[in-house]
């Protein structure tokens, strides 16, 4: 972990959709360079928290304080512009930030290399890329704006297991290299244990208890065996039971 400066604070945040409370009095603080995994069963409001933190959704109650320069979001779907080649998709965030065209090219090339895209792939349109490649482009687009806070919203749910690992390693590497803080929403406990410093488990119901656990070691330095053992141990933990009972929340 980097310094202890606080990057993001959510204070007593509450939200409801059509009168149904999904979130009540939720508090969260992220420090500099910290990666927090937000985990919970489906329908527990983890994506809502991410959207509120990223300013895509205004909370009904509570407040959000952001102490960072710039953020970026990696969504569950790649959300690429189908009419732009991969190169221009990666440059999209830079363009929105008003970076001149000739400066963008070098940044794009660098990011493409970081996420393992070849120069040849950069000229392809999203329709010509595989699912994994598209998500790589999405990650490159987010990293290209040099964010000091990145929001990941179940980014690797749709890719196969082997590729998932590669993409997770890519995120871990980038976080260590660029020292950004990140909120990583996932429903996969082993993914959370692999990428994060700390884990926040949301209950299914808004009035349930929130569980917080620190994960020993640095992301990327934990052995596969340690990750597996921790996931195994937590699977048996009653606090994590809701994550595995497979029921959708009852509305």
């Amino acid at each position: 972990m980097g310094g202890q400066a606080v990057k993001l604070v959510l204070e007593r945040v509450g939200h409801a959709f059509l009168g149904r409370a999904v979130l009540e009095d939720f508090d969260l603080a992220l420090t500099d360079g910290e990666v927090v995994a937000l985990i919970g069963p489906s329908g527990c409001g983890k994506t809502t928290i991410l959207q509120i933190a990223a300013g895509l959704l205004d909370p009904l109650r509570g407040r959000v304080r952001r102490h960072y320069r710039r953020h970026a979001v990696v969504f569950q779907e790649p959300r690429l512009l189908p009419w732009l080649a991969a190169r221009d998709n990666i440059a999209y965030g830079l363009r929105m930030n008003g970076i001149a065209r000739d400066l963008r090219a070098a940044m794009v090339a660098q990011r493409a290399q970081d996420v393992g895209l070849s120069a040849h792939d950069l000229d392809k349109y999203p329709a010509e890329l595989s699912g994994g490649m598209r998500q790589r482009v999405a990650v490159a687009r987010a990293l290209a704006v040099r964010p000091d806070m990145v929001y990941f919203d179940e980014p690797f749910t749709a890719v196969d297991v082997g590729l998932k690992r590669i993409l997770q390693d890519l995120v871990i590497e980038a976080a260590a290299r660029e020292q950004f803080s990140a909120l990583f929403v996932t429903h996969d406990l082993s993914e959370a244990v692999r990428v994060a410093h700390r884990l926040v488990l949301l209950p299914r119901r808004a009035d349930g208890t929130i569980v917080e656990r620190a994960i020993a070691g640095e992301p990327g330095r934990r052995s596969e065996r340690a990750i597996f053992a921790l996931v195994e141990a937590w699977s048996a933990d009653p606090a994590f039971r809701e994550l595995f009972d497979g029921r959708e929340s009852l509305h």
Partner: peptide, 9 residues
């Protein structure tokens, strides 16, 4: 969805 992506930037 693309609109939200652009707003995030």
């Amino acid at each position: 969805a693309l609109d939200a992506m652009a707003r995030s930037f």
